[in-house]
Design a protein around this nucleic acid. Sequence first.
RNA 1: GGGGCUGUAGCUCAGCCGGAUAGAGCGACGGUUUCCUAAACCGUAGGUCGUGGGUUCGAGUCCCGCCAGCCCCGCCA
Length: 633
Amino acid sequence: MALEKAFPEAAAARQLEATKLVGAEQQARYWLLDPQLAPASKPEFGDFQANGALALARPLQQPPRAVAAAIVEQLAADPAFTALCFPPQIAGPGFINLTLRPEALVAEVASRLADTRLGVPLAGVAAAVSGFGAAPAAGAAAGIVVPSPPAEPVIVDFSSPNIAKEMHVGHLRSTIIGDCLARVLAFRGHAVLRLNHVGDWGTQFGMLITHLKREAPEALTTADAVDLGDLVAFYRQAKQRFDADEAFQTTAREEVVKLQAGDPVSRRAWQLLCDQSRREFQLIYDRLGIELQERGESFYNPYLPAVVTDLEAAGLLVIDDGARCVFLEGVSGKEGKPLPVIVQKSDGGFNYATTDLAAIRYRFAAAPAGDGARRVIYVTDAGQASHFAGVFQVARRAGWIPEDRRLEHVPFGLVQGEDGKKLKTRSGDTVRLKDLLDEAVERSEADLRRRLVEEDRQEDEAFIHHVATTVGLAAVKYADLSQNRTTNYQFSFDRMLALQGNTAPYLLYAVVRIAGIARKGVEAAGASDMGSDPGDYGGDADLAFSEPQEWALVRHLLGFDAVIAEVEEELLPNRLCTYLFELSQVFNRFYDQVPVLKAPPQARASRLALCRLTADTLKLGLGLLGIPTLERM
RNA sequence: GGGGCUGUAGCUCAGCCGGAUAGAGCGACGGUUUCCUAAACCGUAGGUCGUGGGUUCGAGUCCCGCCAGCCCCGCCA
């Protein structure tokens, strides 16, 4: 955040001090030490704390507090620093506590109010604008310093359901987390390619087509001859036959070969099945407000042979038991033998590892023969961690990943039921995503209707439907995103729809409260002669804050950009959720204890401005989570 | 057998490249409404951070051992 501009100063001063205190021969070593500046761990310590003095004490052979004192002396001599912060306090064993001057905070609030990006820089612009003393809004005000957006895209590979199957809870996390990460990256100014790597190729199709030829041939020639539910049943039967019947297996494998070779009849059947599934997936995506570009496994079919050729040329291929493999370094399997990644089966066919390798190769290859990606992110369950580790290693050794490009697996844990086991329906089936979303919305609607009765409110059906849908879907998304991605999480309708706690309804309610103030503010403004532009309640006022709850809100609001930067780097949406939850809590305390509309004019204008900035921050933050907000609920 | 992830309050979980007295929500108990939606706010109780070592001025956080749970491991994806 802009407030952290104090940081470079502190760092420079400390480094300067280190130079003086140690001999020249040791300078280089300490030059690289950082002052360990971090947000204060407790409000009474101020805004930031620098812990670097403690680490320096030993090498300098001086008491930590003496080192801290020397640093503080340097800081005090710096006009830029003293303009921003009060004189630093040395506390405890040698912590340096920094407190920002109110004027600095107010100035930053004012600049955020004028900045639609709320202080979040566009990627690549950060360095240019961050010179000390530059007004944070300077970039925006000077009119788009933005260089042409980077041509190299960031690819987010997520959702990835399988054709001829319905989406189930297993796809939930990938879809929601991937969408959120894509939104954050796009907001930071990256060109984002959202790829849906659907399972539309391979053995499963041989199975299905072979089975349908006997059971329901019309499905292979006529669109929608059987509905998707039946198709799923056929798929299950096909799988059973495949596992039990050797002759069927052979036929199915031959069918795959025909399909991959482009046999017109097989292709036509495949196309029909894909179209049908695609429409079904799209219903879910539309409902969740998620955009995706489909590029399934079949897309990489033409590139599969080149994978093998490349690996062969790189000298990585080994034929083992008739299969072409690359043996992994540093990963030993059974009996100490290195673990293989099989890229071509003994029957000559390719498997999913080959497809994943072809995808990596294509995605990093320069356009137009590839995507030329700068960063590729895979959002899949943690169970595939070793698969991706292996595939990534092969891709690196093959030389497909240029220097300074990033390739990351973003794993997530399982969705579990409240019994701690994998989520299932009462009858033991996997839960269909559609049913899960339906139930969330139904429960949300029931809650709403109960409240309307209790509060004696009248709302029309359109309102009820809209609110119930928004809240229900938001609850599902938020429950997923607010959890640390890497761990399994327990799915609970009751918890996610709770009106209090770290839930979507709680956050949405905070936005609704502010919207209420805005509405009333505009009505009141119509009566008096304050400005009547509803989008600008108090924005132009001179800001002045006095109450502790106002300052708490100010300080929290100014942390937004730092959180976004963190999510972009760590790819952990729950950090943003925690921030927004805390912001809502701080706002609710403010709302509870500080009157806004009934305050005297000067305070009122400042408080309205704070409300607007809070609402904007919540809306933007929730938007990045893929959650739309409401004016009333 | 090898590898990965996880173990923090009764429950669900945070804890941001080690930092000051380990935080929140739910649940429990007790308060707050002439006032912008009380779907809120305030307070109390509750933890030897799985366990044993180690590194460090300082460890929930890093390293090693052990215990428990989940997941992955050659021609499925």
